[in-house]
Each structure stands twice: as C-alpha cells, then as structure tokens.
C-alpha cells in the first residue's frame, strides 16, 4: 500500500518536475503572436512534406490555420517559435491574388534599394531554393529548359506582383512572394540577378 502511494506520487510529480526544466513559458500577449514570414516558409517547406502531401495556404482561412498549426506543432515536434513562423507564412499567403489584368510598367533603369541577390535570399529562397531548382516538389525549376525566366519581364513581374499558380506546384506563389515591401524595381533586380548568375 505504501509502495503504491509512492508510485502514484512519482507518476504525477515526475512530469511536473520535468516541466520545471522550462519554466519560462512564453504566453503571447498579442496572440497569435506574429512570426517571421520567410522563416515560416522555410520551416513549412522543410517539414510538412516529410509525412504528408503539402497543403497549400489557400486551403484554409486564417482562423482555421491557427488550430491546424497548433495541432501540427504537437505532431511534428515544432517549437513554439517555428509554429508562429509557419502560421505567419500561411496566413500571409492565403489571400487570393487580385487577378487584375493590369499591364505592368517597367522602369528602364531598375533602382532597387537592395541587390537582387539579397532580395532573392530574403524573400524567394525558401520555396525556390538556393540553387533555383525549387525546394518543394512542383515548384518551377529556374535552371531547366522550361524555366519561367524565359518569359518576358512584364509577364514575370505581373506574376510576382499578383501571385501565380504554377502547374503542379503545391501552392500558388503569394502576391509579391509574400513580401509586401517589394516593388517593381525590386522584382526587376531579382530577375536580373537570376539571369546574370545563369542558374
């Protein structure tokens, strides 16, 4: 009887002792706390497809993604920060593209504030990969004979500005690649960079 009480006490206290290892619980005051969009895209691209087919951001609304991401945090063993990053990415990518057939006016001298390489590394690399071949199944290959770079600049810029669904890709590229700060000069700089390095 004494041993039984002792065992039961251990069963209940053991998890509490382990919990105390991480006492600094982070309660998001501005729940759901914002995460890092680009980091979220990276975590999403590197983890989800290992177990199941990728679910595109537009499959669920913002509120549905909250519970889904918390569910997946437990299933996939993500950290709290990783799940906030993924949630920010998914919620920032599920707004439908405008679809407006607005012709894009390109400046003849692109004057992006930062280099095309920097923009690509910060905004595009999570899905398109460092080698431009795509880090997700179905993402267009910039190095192949059917590279999207073979399209004219106006079409490419329009696709980036408004978002674009490539055939076979698990998700549509969000408008401006999910980075609202991008402008046409930035996009032109990225295209120039990709063409210069001849991926």
């Amino acid at each position: 009887m004494k041993n039984s009480i002792y065992r039961q006490t251990v069963y209940i206290l053991a998890p509490l002792v382990l919990m105390s290892v991480f006492p600094n619980r982070i309660l998001a005051a501005d729940y759901p706390a914002p995460g890092d969009f680009q980091q979220g895209a990276k975590v999403w691209a590197e983890n989800c497809g290992r177990c199941h087919n990728i679910r595109g951001p537009r499959e669920l609304r913002d509120d549905q993604w909250i519970t889904t991401v918390f569910h997946m945090r437990l299933r996939a063993g993500l950290t709290g920060q990783e799940s906030r990053d993924v949630l920010t990415f998914l919620q920032g990518s599920n707004t439908p593209a405008t679809g407006a057939a607005t012709p894009v006016k390109l400046s003849k001298t692109a004057t992006a504030a930062v280099s095309g390489k920097t923009i690509y590394t910060q905004t595009c690399i999570a899905c398109h990969g460092a080698d431009g071949k795509g880090s997700l199944p179905g993402v267009p290959d910039f190095t192949g004979s059917k590279s999207p770079l073979s399209k004219d600049d106006a079409t490419l810029t329009k696709n980036v500005l408004e978002g674009f669904q490539s055939p076979g890709s698990p998700m549509a590229m969000p408008p401006k690649g999910g980075n609202p700060d991008l402008n046409t000069d930035d996009i032109q700089a990225v295209m120039n960079y990709l063409r210069e390095i001849e991926l």
Binding site: F22, R25, I26, C51, L74, A76, T79
Partner: peptide, 24 residues
Amino acid sequence: FLNDYMALVAGKFLSPVGQFRQNL
C-alpha cells in the same frame, strides 16, 4: 502548451512508438 519547447498531453493519445501510428 507549457512553453515554446514543451507541451503536456493528457488523455488517450496515439502511441509515440514509431511513426506510422501517430503520424501516418
């Protein structure tokens, strides 16, 4: 959700042994 690195799961759960049952 106890903190960014730990959650306490109580009740009837899928076995964490292996991958198939809990994830696949």
